[in-house]
Design a protein around this nucleic acid. Sequence first.
RNA 1: GCCCGGGUGGCGAAACUGGCAAAAGCGGCGCACUUAAAAUGCGCUGCCCCGAAAGGGGCUUGCGGGUUCGAGUCCCGCCCCGGGCACCA
Length: 829
Amino acid sequence: MSGYDPKAIERRWQQVWAEERTWEVANPGQPGFEGDKPKAYVLEMLPYPSGEPHVGHLKCYAVGDAIAHFRRRHGFEVIHPMGYDAFGLPAENNAIKTGEPPREATERSIDSFRRQFREWGISIDWSRELGTHTPEYYRWTQWIFLRLFERGLAYRDEAPVQWCPRDATVLANEQVVDGRCERCGTPVEQRRLEQWFFRITDYADRLLADFDQLESWPDHVVTMQRNWIGRSEGAEVSFRCEEVGLDFPVFTTRPDTLFGATFFVLAPEHPELERLVAGTPAEAAVREYVNDVVRASAEERGDEARPKTGVPLGRSVVNPVNGEEIPMYVADYVLMEYGTGAIMAVPAHDPRDYEFARSFDLPVRRVIEGSDEETARDAEGLPYAGDGPMTGSGSFDGKHNREAYEEIVGWLAAEGRGRKAVNYRLRDWLVSRQRYWGAPIPVVYCEGCGIVAVPDDQLPVELPEVEDYAPQGRSPLAAAEDWVATECPRCGKPARRETDTMDTFVDSSWYFIRYLDSRNEEAAWDRAAADHWLPVDQYIGGVEHAILHLMYARFFTKALADLGHLDVQEPFANLFTQGMITRDGAKMSKSKGNTVSPAEYVERYGADTARTYVCFMGPPERGGDWSDEGVEGVNRFLSRLWRLCEEVEGGEGAALEARAVEGDARALLAKAHWAIDKVTRDFQRGFQFNTAIAAVMELVNDAYRLKEGLHGDEQGAAAMRFAAATAASLVFPFAPHLGAEVWERLAGGRVWETPWPQADPELLSSDTVTLVVQVNGKLRDRIEAASDAPESELIELARASEKVRRHLDGKEVVKEIVVPGKLVNLVVR
RNA sequence: GCCCGGGUGGCGAAACUGGCAAAAGCGGCGCACUUAAAAUGCGCUGCCCCGAAAGGGGCUUGCGGGUUCGAGUCCCGCCCCGGGCACCA
């Protein structure tokens, strides 16, 4: 006996897979294309190559690979590609610190990722590999940018933006967390800058509606996106300021409370503020207030607990529903980015307006009556956000507010003072970055022609070499004078290149399409290939991308479909989000020193152990705490399977006629078929790999337990071989090397070319069952009974039991409940 | 505050559609093998009480109620932990 030697086994099979290009698949029209098989696109989120892969990567690719293998053995032609999201800040910040060009550090990391993915035995079609930082890739990122630009979906505009002073770049809204830069944690500042945006807000409704088209996404991911898009239905209502002759539209979700508006508030950034107060006594105070607000950080301003502040403008507007004049204020609780940057304040029915009214001693007018309890809670029960009959609202008095809602909006529309409106929390996607390590935005600025797109045949606009990667409030690319100075593609006169680069989320918003045709030099992809493989049938990745990446990719897919380049509206039909692995209960980080290096474990126990362990830790969608003892447990299991294989190797035949087998051999066969059924169902019910692996462990344990009794005869030996081969077949998606090796030794041939086993129904059921007998719902006895015994016989059996009788003693049985094949419950009094 | 998850032995967990709570793993204890240890194999392992033992009884899925012959699972009300959003009118 040689013992389990994962190194030798794993090296051997990795070589086979590499030499034979086992996992490569062909596109329509290419030789080897298997159009008769159903396709399955299995995709894990592409890694950001920084340093070495960590356990999160191991888990993601172990889970994805198990799914890929499972689908292949169910007759699917599985496409399972890999690439690298290689542009981005960490490599660049490293470059600033060490002077090493980001390309070099990134390439080094990619080499390490590639080598380790091969050592893990992940079944990847390497012929499709890509890196988003290569000109061959970003050429087409730029091409897509230009298509969006042509359609007005990419535009340049001056807007208040979030600026990270540490990274010296603007950020997308999605990249600001609690008023801080998502990457470095520095509080962000507001700046007014001209930047590039993608018009994702045009797609807000479709991004919401098409959740219906998805097959299976985790609810919480859908909910998070829904909240992020933040659709609100309401009305836009115009309030007129006669003194300056201006109309101020507001957005409200509560037009039914219009009669309760007692004041009016503008955001400090409101463009008409200047005009309203210029030359008035309020001017100085307003100016000072606005300056203070602008200086405050987003974090301070976002703090709800802070008392409301503001300044009166000395102006008033007219409430269109009752002609009442109400005073105007400026206050920072009103945001310029949402709605119209102005609100009608209804203190009786909005907590923020109420708070403001209290501070400034403004009238509070109730226009919706509450239920009795509601009113009783507080002296006045205000602010009241609920529903009820209207009051103080002219002809609407007495009507329920929900009913009056439509009527009021209708009246406003007829009067030309308002209309139905929808607002979104979602903002357009800010995509330009003042950083080096990204795809250059392919436009030039010409004095005569303005913004001019770089023609397609001049793509890619290659990233120039620079000496200093540090941003100084402008892109480092600006220093590459030779590169910046160019000529206008339209008029030929001198022009200057755009020096901003694109957000890396742009790169990762379409990579799953490029995989389908990654070597294409003529086009971003071939339509036939895209139409064949899309959508991704199973997408796997971390929840941290629930909003950003997934929403951007959905937007890209829709935009590209609208432009006629794709046939699908949704990129990812099914999504699986894996939970995070912790150590000692804490998120792994270098500073805490609790990181786990997959390479170390692969070296010590082999890739099969490492992969199987991360799938066994717990339900894959949940997190789990890394345990070295747990790893050893899994290693012990795989070793046991290996030794079992060595013991039963040789001898004739593994397949058996189930009907002909008896005793322990039959019991073991039945267990094997039970395991087949269990593993198959666990795969189908949301990838419950922890229990699937546990089932294979049970099978191996049973084989050990029954081993002694089975060695003697031919039938027993065959049953043992069948059990071991079945265990290998079932464990193959998790431990592919060991699975392939054991299968080859016991059954011959290649397990990945062998169809997934099917459980024999005859072996899943047995002639006898353990009947559970309860008295008043409490377990009193277990009795062996024929599985087809009639109810009357089961009751008789139950009553005959000594243990049961003890509890019936002197009492009357008032009811008998029978669940055939399972249980009898005697109810006594 | 609002929206999602989750709470079950010493630990991470299982439990299909309401029907034996705790599978498999880890840890612990014991036995075998060994000069010994490691490795390996086998067995025991939720808590409490009675019993020398065999055995018997009770309790137990965050808390409190409810529905049901029967509840970890369904309903109502709470508590705690994790995540997301948050002055979005």
